[in-house]
């Protein structure tokens, strides 16, 4: 391609008409600034501006003062930059009676995120491993069932999960009080209750349940691609189920673990539906609290605070996205193409 290509390009550059007539038919070798390329780049840049616009507007608005917002338009640059909206969004913005800002939602989200990611990934990792290397009669049936479940709208399963969480909570409370009462005779020392519905631990379970189809699929396909010989050699050497998992499979599965973590962190951080259904007001994750702050009817709308709050909420997934780069793409592609 190289020699003939550059030759043709030079010829074409010297004499465009002859280049067109004499050259090979079909697509001409590319010049850097052919008319088609200019159009291509032009379109791409315009589209890129459209995609970047909301991010720009968020940043610009969050740095303006309210009087300036009322005078100008959303796209103008701030005249004197103020960080007051950010401080207010983080520490003072009100939802209902609480006026301690988005920080509460942020820490709630962190408290939900970390256990959810760990629990969901460990369950999915073990399940994927069992499904790929230790198949038994019926295991594929359950797996198919799980994948079919991924397509069921969440709304169908929301209420049954409420009931399951409530009943399991009561059941665990009974067990706890029973065993506790068996060992201590003092009256009233066993008041502790296990509450799953309306608590962060319940939400962690919910995230683990609904994240399972995609994660199990991810891990199953990954482990299935690990050579069978490796697995058999370990079996011959006398390693069992857990030994093979921890000594051989897990050390090899760092890439897929990173992909799964990226997938789960962004997914759980961005969740709104489960947060609003399965927790109470003071435990709302960041997205729910953000919506309550911005869409609250009382008071005057402070657009700069709203945009600062919005940007704060988007910051975590954005940071993950820009840091992880290609892995993020791989994660969603792996999740999307097969799911």
């Amino acid at each position: 391609m190289a020699d003939i290509g550059t030759l043709n390009t030079m010829k074409a550059a010297e004499d465009p008409v002859r280049g067109q007539l004499d050259g090979p038919r079909g697509a001409r070798p590319k010049r850097n600034l052919s008319r088609r390329n200019i159009m291509l780049y032009g379109v791409l840049i315009v589209v890129a501006i459209y995609y970047l616009l909301p991010l720009y507007v968020m940043i610009v608005t969050s740095l303006k003062t309210m009087p300036e917002i009322r005078l100008g338009n959303v796209f103008s640059l701030p005249k004197d930059i103020t960080f007051q909206p950010w401080v207010k969004a983080w520490a003072e913005a009100c939802t209902g009676v609480n006026c301690d800002g988005l920080s509460r939602g942020f820490w709630n989200s962190v408290r939900i995120l970390i256990p959810s990611v760990i629990l969901s990934i460990s369950i999915a990792c073990v399940s994927g491993y069992a499904l790929s290397k230790w198949k038994f009669k019926g295991s594929e049936v359950f797996f198919t069932l799980l994948l079919v479940g991924a397509f069921i709208p969440y709304q169908v399963m929301l209420y049954p999960v409420v009931i399951i969480l409530r009943d399991v909570g009561t059941f665990l409370t009974d067990i706890w009080q029973g065993t506790c009462g068996f060992f201590t005779s003092a009256e009233g020392s066993c008041r502790g209750r296990v509450q799953l519905f309306g608590s962060l631990s319940g939400l962690v379970i919910v995230h683990s349940i609904f994240g399972m189809p995609i994660l199990v699929l991810l891990f199953r396909n990954y482990f299935a691609s690990i050579p069978e010989e490796l697995f058999k050699a370990a079996r011959v050497d006398g390693a069992g189920f857990w030994q093979i998992l921890f000594r051989i499979m897990l050390p090899m599965s760092l890439p897929i673990l990173v992909v799964a973590i990226i997938l789960q962190v962004t997914g759980i951080w961005n969740d709104f539906l489960f947060g609003v259904v399965y927790t109470r007001a003071e435990q709302y994750p960041m997205t729910v609290q953000l919506n309550n702050i911005v869409n609250s009817v009382q008071g005057t709308k402070e657009y700069n605070v709203n945009m600062a709050a919005t940007l704060l909420t988007g910051l975590v997934p954005l940071a993950i996205y820009f840091v992880s780069g290609k892995l993020f793409v791989r994660g969603i592609a792996a999740g999307a193409v097969k799911g």
Binding site: V74, N270, T287, V294, M307, P317, I320, Y321, G325, I332
Partner: peptide, 28 residues
């Protein structure tokens, strides 16, 4: 270009909705 086209996907629908609510605000 790919990074720019894909980054909105990392954001939640709540953030998306609120930003566009602001951009489509009739006054500003």
């Amino acid at each position: 270009f790919r990074t720019i086209f894909l980054y909105p996907f990392a954001l939640s629908f709540i953030v998306t909705g609120l930003v566009w609510q602001w951009i489509l605000n009739p006054d500003y």
